[in-house]
Amino acid sequence: MTVGLNEFLAISGLLFAIGFTGVLLRRNTLVIYMCLEIMLSAAILALVGFSRFNNTMDGNIFVFFIITVAAAEVAVGLAIIVALFRHRQTIQVEDLNTLKN
């Protein structure tokens, strides 16, 4: 195939940007969390791409760890969101305003 590293990096960069924008833009904590996952995916894609075109295995191994961690993070994060929902009946960011001066 004629597609090179640059194309993969471009996808990865765009994916990262979309995820980042989502984190900033969205108000629903669940969706924000999904956007974080998109950012992680972007980083993973970049790593795998580099690993492939640099001919080194390290990047792939790193991705293995990242996926492991991401799964754990999601589990903890969702647990917190659910627990909070029980108290507040909401998952919108602007309703999380108990903490203030």
């Binding site: 990262f16 969390y33 580099f50 969101i81 108990t98």
Partner: peptide
Amino acid sequence: EAGLKYLILGGLSTGLLLFGIA
């Protein structure tokens, strides 16, 4: 609520860190 805030911003920082490492 504090946990959730830390979670979101922590996740964001992890994303930045990872992309930088990549």
